[in-house]
Design a protein around this nucleic acid. Sequence first.
DNA 1: CTGAAAGCGCTTACAG
DNA 2: CTGAAAGCGCTTACAG
Lengths: 351, 351
Amino acid sequence: MVERVVPIPSARRPTLIDIARECGLSRATVARALSGKGYVDLDRRRLIQETADRLGYRTSTIARALRTQRTSSVGVLIADITNPIFPQIVKGIDEIVSSDGHTIFLSNTDEDPQKQVAIVRSLLDRQVDGIVMVSQTLADETLKLLEHGPPCVFVNRRPYEGVDYVGPDNEQGIELLLTHLRGLGHQRIAYVSGPSHSSTSRERLAHFRVSMAACGLEVDERLVFAGNYYKESGAKAAEAFMAVTPRPTAILAANDFVALGIVGYLHSIGLNTPADISVTGFDDMFDSSLMETEALKVEGLTTVNQPKRHLGRAAGKLLLERLGAPDAPGRKVILPTELRIRHTTGPVRKG
Amino acid sequence: MVERVVPIPSARRPTLIDIARECGLSRATVARALSGKGYVDLDRRRLIQETADRLGYRTSTIARALRTQRTSSVGVLIADITNPIFPQIVKGIDEIVSSDGHTIFLSNTDEDPQKQVAIVRSLLDRQVDGIVMVSQTLADETLKLLEHGPPCVFVNRRPYEGVDYVGPDNEQGIELLLTHLRGLGHQRIAYVSGPSHSSTSRERLAHFRVSMAACGLEVDERLVFAGNYYKESGAKAAEAFMAVTPRPTAILAANDFVALGIVGYLHSIGLNTPADISVTGFDDMFDSSLMETEALKVEGLTTVNQPKRHLGRAAGKLLLERLGAPDAPGRKVILPTELRIRHTTGPVRKG
DNA sequence: CTGAAAGCGCTTACAG
DNA sequence: CTGAAAGCGCTTACAG
């Protein structure tokens, strides 16, 4: 008996044509039936649906995208997924956009402008329907690319006013902290800012000055340090402040990382918080419910919570709405912060 | 003077045809020049490249994908981006696959089988080139979908032997912990397992028994609790263990969450670690360098570190290699763990 | 209500 | 070395 090579039925995915043949109809009719758009005889519609199910038909998003020029995908840029701020924001974005059938391309820029440009270019190549930029300072080239790109929503930093933007209420946050410190008797208060290329960082610094004035306090310029959001800049700032006479009794940091750097440095030279000096952060980066626990919790940094999940959700909504109204004016969503009093602030030390 | 409506040059992206026209050549030649495949006259090649740059041409990944059936995208499934274990693994995967031109679709399954199926279906619809499943217990339907899908690499859990798999050395990790506890004089040791649907959880439990025997210790079945990796199960287990006489002097937890639950419960009933009882975790979920700081650090859980970033990298490599060799046999990469002795373990209490 | 046809923007044998 | 042509799998006016 001669062996015969049985042609293995190709495992390729079925297409509209396969269903059309099976049903004795045209591709057009099948497409209309499956998409639910346009008229199709009811019985045929049923037949088509059954056949599609039986063959395991799934419409090719690629082919559809090529035809319709919409991909149902969105790009999200963050600095670093291992920075605990960002996962929460991303989760919020995801909740909203994925419920609308969009899938997320997530990329880390590591604060590197070159990477940012490369990633945006890659997203444009993929024709994402929209982009969310989380805490990104835009490179000039990125800005240029975006001009011809899809809608973009900015979270925490924006290149200029008028774009779709979501951010925490930085002014209110600073006020909460200053009011808290003022209530503890602090008057000589230092500030470590973030980088000036961050709009949020600029807002926080500007409002520090405004709010100090409103409290009737003077800002000693030797007690304002231009940091960069990283721990090391907090340490350097603290070192500089300790050389100023009289020393500050409290230090406001532009974010939690900086605050940790400050506390770390103070500790290294034998000063304690809040006994010797009070320190506050901003962001409440460790507020994930997963990380809470009664016994083993992160030692308490007094800070201001930014509602990360909600910021993400708001950004997702803004983006979806923007997709439906490309020419509407830019919108701004500012979400309130909350004071979290923990263990790095206390009454001013009696000199 | 009559106003004339100047037709606004459409901002649509330039295509091969635009370049071909501009250069007086065919699309085919332009495509070959730009892709670098096939022969093109050197001068023409230059002309084409210049023209492409001038027009800002970028090849449409969608059109290419439709033609070549490769998308240069990969899907990554995790349970929850806000669980600090996963970002590090994702980062490792990203480092490898993005350097190869792949972009990542990242999705949260929230341990929900329905979501898992929906996400995998969506990834298949998008024809991703590959999938990485991180800590996923596969739903039957997912498994079925994957049979006709692209290559898939499994991290931490695998549906069966023989698939591409990357995981920590669970046996070695358990041994490190038991040896450590044994050295502190502990003999009566309890274990809180993870869910039995997790291959990694099963390995840890199985090796707990093996390793206890190897140490010459007996396993009291009343001191083995079937947990589920969540904190609450740690609390319940601890409660149960405290009702057993004699009580255990040490408790091994299948992961850090469970350990936190145990410590929390013990603390709530007035018992302290390690004075009254020793507790260990697994994973070292808080080991991000971003979270380290001298002064404000996570209170110390003794645990075993799994090299998350490296696990991710290994998974990325396995996937890329698999794309180049679809029919090669499945491979397994097991990475060593490291003991992290902190403050929840101590010498057994003299009864 | 249905089908023929064009077209989205590429890639790739194939013939020359 | 180059170009004509087919085809990836859809969607969508358009004519009937």
